[in-house]
């Protein structure tokens, strides 16, 4: 589904990604972890072309992201993305957030878009908040709306960029529960997160990144059981140590 091969990226002279290759098969849940500044968020933003890269290629459903001839908006409409800071549109109600792209990008009618949006809002348990503005919701609620907004587009895969990092601890689980449910329904997911509990529960594979390189790319059991690299061992001991 998502194929990343030999991707390198530079900010000026500074190389943020070095020869990254991996793939996410249909229905797979891949967790990307690693210390901050290791390039995981940059890598996931390359997948839908929000960040350009200078070498290598990424294909999603067989379509090249790096090819200048690719209709990027059209491709992005098929890939859902959830951000660390939710990024709901603050000047629109929850309903408007959910229907905007359905109407403008997919060309759905207002009624159809609204029905779809409300159904998904119900699914993330927020039907009562349809007419509120994002600023009046808690962080956890906003992130669930953001997930619903992405799902409204009927995505073939979902990208999560540290979806719980900006949340207060007591709100993390309500978001993770939605994500676990999605994973169990067979959604193809690439998730940048530090939530190792989530990785243990639903990940098929774990990718460990450090200094812009993919250091480990293994099954969940292997990663938590016997990480090969010293760097990953150190990371795990720190993150699981308490």
């Amino acid at each position: 589904m998502i194929n990343i091969s030999g991707v390198s990226k530079w900010y000026g002279d500074f190389q943020v990604l070095t020869d990254c290759s991996t793939e996410v098969a249909k229905g797979d849940v891949v967790v990307v972890c690693g210390p901050s500044g290791s390039g995981k968020s940059t890598l996931i933003k390359c997948v839908n072309g929000l960040e350009p890269f200078q070498a290598g290629d990424i294909t999603v459903d067989g379509i090249s992201v790096g090819d200048p001839k690719t209709d990027l908006p059209k491709l992005r409409a098929r890939i859902g993305m959830v951000f660390q800071n939710f990024e709901l549109f603050p000047h629109m109600t929850v309903t408007e957030n959910l229907t905007l792209a359905q109407i403008k990008v997919l060309g759905r009618g207002r009624g159809e878009a609204l029905a779809k949006g409300l159904a998904l809002l119900d699914r993330v348990g927020l039907k009562a908040h349809a007419e509120k503005f994002p600023g009046n919701l808690s962080g956890g609620q906003q992130q669930r709306v953001a997930i619903a907004r992405a799902l409204c587009m009927d995505p073939i895969a979902m990208l999560f960029d540290e979806p719980t990092s900006a949340l207060d601890p007591e709100m993390i689980n309500e978001v993770l529960d939605v994500m676990v449910q999605l994973a169990q329904e067979g959604m193809t997911m690439m998730v940048v997160t530090h939530e190792m509990g989530f990785a243990r529960r639903v990940a098929d594979r774990v990718i460990f990144m450090d200094a812009g390189k993919i250091v480990e790319d293994t099954t969940k059991n292997e990663f938590f059981g016997t990480p090969r690299s010293e760097r990953a061992q150190l990371f795990l001991s720190k993150i699981l140590g308490h």
Binding site: N48, P73, R76, F83, E87, F89, H91, M153
Partner: peptide, 30 residues
């Protein structure tokens, strides 16, 4: 307007004009 807002618009498949018209300019104007 935070960069993430533009990213969110693009990630939903909006093109430059749509993200300007529906996401960035209304907030900037306000």
């Amino acid at each position: 307007i935070p960069r993430g807002q533009v990213w969110a618009g693009y990630a939903l498949g909006l093109n430059y004009w749509q993200s300007m018209g529906h996401v960035v300019l209304p907030q900037a104007f306000r």
